[in-house]
Simulated assay, not measured.
Amino acid sequence: MSVLEVPVLSVKQMSKQYGNGCSACKHMKSGKVTKNYCHECGTVYACRDLTFDLYHGEVLGIVGESGSGKSTLMKSLYFDEEVTDGELYVAGFEEGKKNVFMESAQKKRYVRNHLMGKVYQNPILGLKMDFSSIGNIAEKLISAGNRHVGSMESRGAELLEAVNIPVHRMTEEPRNFSGGMQQRVQIAKALSNNPPILLLDEVTTGLDLSVQASVLDLIKGLQRDLNISMVLVSHDLGVIRMLADRTLVMLEGKIIERGLTDQILEDPQHPYTQQLVHSLL
């Protein structure tokens, strides 16, 4: 198997539930369970047996309505939340042979700080709003073990310039910035330690259309120049069409369809995907 055929990230039968479950939902008794919610005990099955791979230089799109489990999946991949069950293998960690979900908090932090970057839908989750923009980047670099102030400053300036933050605003706090600029600072921070994997969670939601377009162009350019692997979550098929090589469609915590993005958009098989694609036309 060539290097390009070995996944940089592999998820196997990942599940995340909120609540302990009961006999009604464990056996999915009709009338007791609606979609992925149990009326008997209140358990929500946010992600159910998710399995997929991400390859070198690939953009994997994940699309679905609110509540489909997309953001829960992203929180789990970045260890913002613990999974209920499942396996995660990352190529740069223990030769991709150890289930990261079962590793210690320290080892998860290593994977998060060295092998991944994440851009959150809400910049408040990804940035310290009372730090300078360049200070936010330094924070990520320090987490990855960098201690050289001069190199952190030059790396921060280089990245902020790459995402079109004016030089004279680099020492300004992100809370003074527009939503689009905050997202660009988040992207710079996420890329600071050259991670092989970038997680993008609804990064254009709530932005004006012109700002959305500039952020998407930036992501597309960075992906092309750095050949980074990305997991891109969106409820917007236009965003998926522009950026994703392959796409997973999620509904009620499950993957209901997967394939090349063009194939899914031109010939959707599942009724829900057909409805999604039709709403875009």
Rank of each mutant, 00 (worst) to 15 (best):
M14R: 01
S10R: 12
S76E: 03
P196D: 06
L232Y: 11
T43D: 01
G221E: 13
E161K: 09
S192Q: 04
D217G: 09
K12M: 08
S154W: 00
F79S: 06
S30F: 15
E173A: 07
P174N: 08
L125S: 06
S66L: 09
V249A: 12
Y45M: 09
T247V: 14
V3Q: 13
M14G: 01
Y110K: 11
T205D: 06
E5P: 06
F93H: 13
S210M: 11
R147C: 01
S71W: 14
V119S: 03
A157Y: 09
V8H: 01
S104A: 10
V215D: 00
L209M: 13
L159G: 01
K189E: 02
C47L: 09
S68Q: 03
H270Y: 10
D217Q: 13
N193L: 00
P7R: 04
N164C: 05
M74D: 03
D225R: 12
Q13P: 03
V249L: 11
V6P: 02
N113L: 10
S151T: 00
G64C: 11
L54E: 05
Q17H: 11
G145W: 04
G57F: 14
G117W: 03
V239L: 06
L265N: 08
I240R: 06
G259S: 07
D49S: 13
I165R: 00
L4R: 09
E81N: 09
V83S: 08
T204A: 12
V100N: 04
S154F: 00
K12T: 09
Y89C: 05
A144W: 01
S104V: 07
E81W: 05
K128H: 10
G31L: 12
S66M: 07
K254Y: 15
L243N: 10
D236E: 05
S154P: 00
D217V: 05
F131Q: 13
Y89D: 04
R48G: 07
N193C: 12
G86N: 07
A162Q: 05
E82S: 06
S154Y: 00
M14A: 14
E65T: 10
V63W: 00
L265K: 01
G145I: 00
L280A: 09
R246K: 11
R155N: 00
R175G: 02
L243M: 13
L77Y: 12
Q275G: 02
I137R: 14
D245Y: 15
V277Y: 14
F52P: 08
R112G: 05
L237M: 01
L191D: 02
P271H: 11
L141H: 02
F79N: 06
Y37V: 14
D262E: 12
V11K: 10
Y37S: 09
V8L: 07
P174G: 05
H270L: 15
A91C: 02
Q17F: 05
G57N: 08
E153N: 08
V6C: 03
V90I: 12
Q269W: 15
E252T: 13
G42S: 05
